[in-house]
Design a protein around this nucleic acid. Sequence first.
DNA 1: AGATATATTGGTAACGTTACCATTCGTTAT
DNA 2: ATAACGAATGGTAACGTTACCAATATATCT
Lengths: 337, 337
Amino acid sequence: MENGRKKPTLKDVAALSGVSVISASRVINNAPNVSRTLREKVEKAAATLGYQRNRIAGSLRGKATELIAVIVPSMSNHVFPQIVDGIDDALKGSKLQLVLGMTKYEEMGEESILRELLTWNPAGVILSGLEHSENTKAMLSQFNGPIVEVMDSDGDAIDMAVGVSMEEAGKSIAQHLVSLGYQRIAYVGAWGERPKRSLKRRLAFEAELARLGQPILTSIILDEQSSLHVGASGMQQLLERKLKPDAVFFANDDLALGALFFCQSKNLSVPTDIALAGYNGLDMCQLISPRLTTIATPRYDMGRIAGEISRKVILDEERPKQLVHKLDVQLIAGETT
Amino acid sequence: MENGRKKPTLKDVAALSGVSVISASRVINNAPNVSRTLREKVEKAAATLGYQRNRIAGSLRGKATELIAVIVPSMSNHVFPQIVDGIDDALKGSKLQLVLGMTKYEEMGEESILRELLTWNPAGVILSGLEHSENTKAMLSQFNGPIVEVMDSDGDAIDMAVGVSMEEAGKSIAQHLVSLGYQRIAYVGAWGERPKRSLKRRLAFEAELARLGQPILTSIILDEQSSLHVGASGMQQLLERKLKPDAVFFANDDLALGALFFCQSKNLSVPTDIALAGYNGLDMCQLISPRLTTIATPRYDMGRIAGEISRKVILDEERPKQLVHKLDVQLIAGETT
DNA sequence: AGATATATTGGTAACGTTACCATTCGTTAT
DNA sequence: ATAACGAATGGTAACGTTACCAATATATCT
């Protein structure tokens, strides 16, 4: 901290070792055709000076930076951290580094974060969902490098996408609930349904219910961020209705868990009095009792694959054949339905 | 994507608007003393060309980058995502942007990630814990800019720190368990106790137990990463002993929850047959039944304060008076003890 | 009016690195 | 022996921006 002398540069290393700057650069970058003696001289000087390369300067001269811009809504849930974890694992060992931006689910969030992150001239961009503002799309269309959209596979990618089908997910949970004989089925969402993929999932859910002759009883979209508390509050709202539902599908497991705990605290029996289903398939939902019915999504893998795709395109110049990489969701029939 | 023409630069903007490059720069940076006409000309040209500033170039010439390097162990738990969330919130609105690296709890992880991140010439560094390798410390001592260590407040900061006292935490849970009359108290940790702060907490816990005349029965340190499953497996190991514990303190809530679910699945009554306590105070632990006894840590706030400190030092040139910012932990006496 | 301050604009150099081209020197092929 | 080649090294310019200083225009003061 706060020490006066400034960082040694390649020039200093070159001067100390008595070679040219460019030769020093070759050693630092493990370029071919460098003699052993040169290498040793430079490495010794670099060690003596405590030289650290400055990639800012390097990436100004070279074409690309080695930064990957990742834009996610938030870290306050269980989904995106795992995606980021997957991306990072895929990038490990390469020179690529993650720059992270969060939109906090704000309307203009993605757009302004993207604008910020693009000023760092990243080599690739990873963002979530397939729906974006016009300005976001415009900025991305100017962007040279891989753009990977994670989460959703229902639609066209700007460049490439890795995700699961929201429609299949909504449909399969509808079929599950109807097949078990539930007749007054409700839905609870959060975040004001700003991530459009949850809207897609709900619409598919409602459409399938209607097709099966059990149209949705009601859908409540809460404006707050998803949490156990909000799930409980959604549940409470439903229970205050005259015509109470006998099954509820929640936009995610956090909401469903909150509802489950709420029901337990009110001595309601799940699923006898009311059935509950979630979305995501968080680990813990299979350890509690009753085990939550939910849809497992491959969060870590979506991140990992998005990272791998980016890495391949940037470093190996190899583009995947399929632009939309669809992964499978899996209905986990637990004990809450 | 992949469109041939290269990005417009300030030079292009200047040429189109008929002013000098430096004047265009002034407009883009909202510098003072720029006439309205000049501003309008440049802004129009910038909009026409779709100009995006290149901060890589800017931060090469200028002194600082406006990147904050954040190094955390992993995103696969509930602790660090919340810290990152806090940091990001504190940085919102400023020009500072987060570059994220993860060590995956590997021995040399922090060191190599830091080396990587420093090549981006960040304006500040945020990392976790107060224990670091010699090389890490050496690199940081060369670093010009705020260094904030989060999580732990027991010890000396390299530069500044925001955290809670591991010793207080270990001590208070020991007192809690002994005061309730437990006599065969055990401990379960994970990650091979690589984050040294968990070791500190355990040692304080064991020391306090000894002081109170109830020395620890056994401490099991598992090598795997913390998870519900690992907690269950630790619990299982303890139950296979001849002398079974009557209370167990876990290194975190994930482990404790896993153990709780495991006990429930074995029809053991908690806390009658066995008492359980965790560490972190995750939301959901207070919603399940029985509510978990745990120690609440201000995760989001640690991140937020670390972010605010960094921001202040970097942008306002104002250093906080206290170098180690200690936040309070809170024992939550739940129903599992 | 002349002097002085202030607002506005421009020119040049530099940040630290790497791409590109040039040079030297030894080695192999003819 | 000469040509042709490749390995090893060096020189120069450039990446896009901003710091610094200089120059001009305009406003204010005595």
